[in-house]
Nucleic acid binder design. Structure first.
Length: 467
DNA sequence: ATGTAC
C-alpha cells in the first residue's frame, strides 16, 4: 500500500498519513490489499461509525473534522430566509436590488448587512450593498472594479480663476479615459505603489504588473470622471474658511489590473463551490484562512492602493499644471472589503458601491455629470455597518438609458446648469441617475453633509454614443 | 468596469 493509492481514494492532508498507517497495520494482520481499500472506503463514507475505537479511529476523527470544516466553509445550502438587514431609502430602490440583497443575506457565511439608498442591480451583490461575513471574502461582494474610489482636491483659487477653455485643455492634456487606455510611454508617471514587493508575491500579480504600470494615472470608462467645479463651504471645515473654492473631483478605479484580479478570483471561488445554490453563484466566496482567500485579500488590497495611486497622479498632474499646492483633500474607496469588529467579532465588511462612514470619517458622494456631489462626514451608524451611499445610483440601466433618453434633452440639462462636458455617453446622462438630493436626504442618519461640489467642466470616456 | 474572450 502506498500514498498514491490512498490519495486516489480522495484522502487529503493529515488523513493521508493516518490512512497509510492504518493500512500498514491491516497488511501486517494479513489482509489483502483490495479488502483494505474497501475498509478505507467504508471509513471515508461514514467516519462517525469508526470514532469509538479500533485501527481506524484516528483516521475517523480526522475525516470527521475535515468534513465539518468543509461544510462550514464551503456549505452550499442557503438559509431558507434572509437575515434581517437595514434599508435606507427603500422608496428609491428597485425590487431586483432588494432581491439580490436577500440572496446575499441567506449565505451561510453572512452575518449582517445593509442596503444604501443608491442601490441598484449588479453582479452578485447589488451596487449599494454592504455585507458582513465571517472568515470569508466574496470577490463579487467587492465588485469588478476593485478599489474604485473618489478623490477631491481643493485649490487656493477662486472657482472662476480657471476659464472653461483652460479647464478643458488641462483635462485633455493630463487625464486619459477609456477601456484599455494607457498613458503614452513618455507621459507615464511613476508611483511608489509600483515599487511594492507585493507584485512579486503571486504569479498573477507578476503577470499583471506591466499592464498596471502602463495604466497608472489614468481613468477608466463608464461612470469614471475627472471634473473641475466649485466647492461651497457654508461654514469653516476641512481646515478651510467658509467660502467658494476651485476644486477637482475624480472617480477612478483599478483599471484592467483590478478587473483581471476580480475575474481570476471569482472564477476560483465558483470552482471551490460547485454545489452552491445557482441563485448565489456570483456570490461564491473564498475562505480567509485558506491560501486562496489570503491571496485574494492581498491582491484586493494592492488593487485598492493602486486605484488611489491613480487619483493621486491625476491630482498631482493638474495641481502642478495650475502651479498651486492643494489646500485640502478628501478621498475614499467605495468598492472594497474591510476587516471590522462587529459585536466583538472580526467580520469582513464588503462595500460594493458604498462609502465607509465611521463616526467622523470623511467621504465623497458624487451626483451626476451635471448634479452636485457632497463631502460628507460619517455618523458611524451601527445597523448601516458604518456606511453610506457611493453616489446617486442608477435609475435607468445602461441599455434603458440609451433607448429612452434623448441627446437634446441631456444637452439642455447640462446647459441649464452651466456644465461643459468632454466625452460622456448617453448612458451616463444625469437623467439616468436618481436625484442626488433625494438620496442624500434618505441617509441623514448615516452622514452629515460638510460641503457641496458643483461640477463645471467634466471629462468622461466617450463611450459608444456621445451626447 | 474591462477590452475582446474557456
Amino acid at each position: 500500500m502506498n500514498g498514491k493509492q490512498i490519495t486516489k481514494l480522495g484522502f487529503e492532508r493529515k488523513a493521508i498519513g493516518l490512512a497509510l498507517s492504518a493500512a500498514t497495520i491491516r497488511e501486517r494482520a494479513g489482509l489483502e490489499r483490495s479488502a483494505i481499500l474497501s475498509e478505507l472506503r467504508a471509513v471515508q463514507a461514514d467516519p462517525a461509525a469508526y470514532l469509538a475505537g479500533g485501527v481506524y479511529a484516528e483516521l475517523a476523527v480526522e475525516l470527521n473534522a475535515q468534513n465539518t470544516l468543509n461544510e462550514s466553509r464551503m456549505g452550499a445550502a442557503l438559509s431558507p430566509s434572509p437575515l434581517p438587514y437595514g434599508v435606507w431609502g427603500a422608496d428609491l430602490i428597485e425590487p431586483g436590488a432588494s432581491a439580490q440583497m436577500d440572496v446575499a443575506m441567506r449565505l451561510p457565511i453572512a452575518r449582517a448587512g445593509a442596503l444604501m439608498p443608491d442601490a441598484h442591480v449588479g453582479y452578485g451583490l447589488p451596487i449599494g450593498g454592504v455585507l458582513a461575513t465571517e472568515n470569508a471574502v466574496i470577490p463579487y461582494g467587492v465588485g469588478v472594479d476593485i478599489g474604485c474610489s473618489m478623490r477631491l482636491s481643493v485649490f487656493p483659487m477662486r472657482p472662476d480663476a480657471v476659464k472653461v477653455e483652460e479647464a478643458q485643455s488641462l483635462l485633455l492634456k493630463h487625464t486619459r479615459f477609456g477601456a484599455g487606455v494607457a498613458f503614452e510611454k513618455r507621459e507615464r508617471d511613476d508611483h511608489e505603489v509600483l515599487h511594492e514587493s507585493t507584485w512579486q508575491d503571486q504569479p498573477l500579480l507578476r503577470h499583471l504588473f506591466d499592464k498596471a504600470a502602463s495604466q497608472i494615472g489614468t481613468s477608466g470608462s463608464g461612470n469614471h470622471f475627472a471634473e473641475f467645479g466649485t466647492l461651497t463651504l457654508t461654514s469653516a471645515d476641512l481646515g478651510l474658511e467658509a467660502g467658494e473654492y476651485l476644486a477637482l473631483l475624480s472617480h477612478s478605479g483599478s483599471r484592467g489590473f483590478g478587473a483581471q484580479v476580480a475575474g481570476h478570483f471569482t472564477g476560483l471561488a465558483e470552482r471551490l463551490h460547485p454545489n452552491l445554490d445557482p441563485a448565489a453563484r456570483k456570490l461564491a466566496w473564498l475562505p480567509l484562512d485558506a491560501e486562496e482567500g489570503e491571496a485574494y485579500w492581498q491582491a484586493m488590497n494592492l488593487a485598492g492602493r493602486y486605484a488611489l495611486a491613480n487619483h493621486e497622479l491625476i491630482h498631482a498632474r493638474l495641481a502642478r499644471a495650475l502651479g498651486v499646492r492643494v489646500l485640502a483633500s478628501v478621498h475614499n474607496s467605495h468598492n472594497l472589503a474591510w476587516k471590522q469588529q462587529i459585536n466583538g467579532r472580526e467580520m469582513i465588511v464588503h462595500r460594493k458601491g458604498a462609502t465607509p462612514a465611521e463616526s467622523g470619517q470623511l467621504g465623497l458622494i458624487p451626483g451626476s455629470m451635471a448634479d452636485p456631489g457632497f463631502v460628507v462626514r460619517g455618523r458611524g451608524h451601527v445597523e448601516a455597518l458604518s456606511s453610506a451611499s457611493h453616489g446617486a445610483g442608477r435609475q435607468l440601466g445602461r441599455k434603458a438609458a440609451a433607448n429612452k433618453l434623448v441627446k437634446k434633452e441631456v444637452a439642455a440639462y447640462l446647459k441649464e446648469r452651466g456644465v461643459t462636458l468632454i466625452g460622456g455617453g448617453i448612458d451616463e446622462a444625469p437623467q439616468a441617475y436618481k436625484r442626488i438630493e433625494d438620496v442624500i436626504a434618505r441617509q441623514s442618519e448615516l452622514v452629515d453633509v460638510v460641503a457641496k461640489f458643483t461640477p463645471r467642466v467634466v471629462r468622461m470616456d466617450s463611450g459608444s454614443e456621445d451626447i
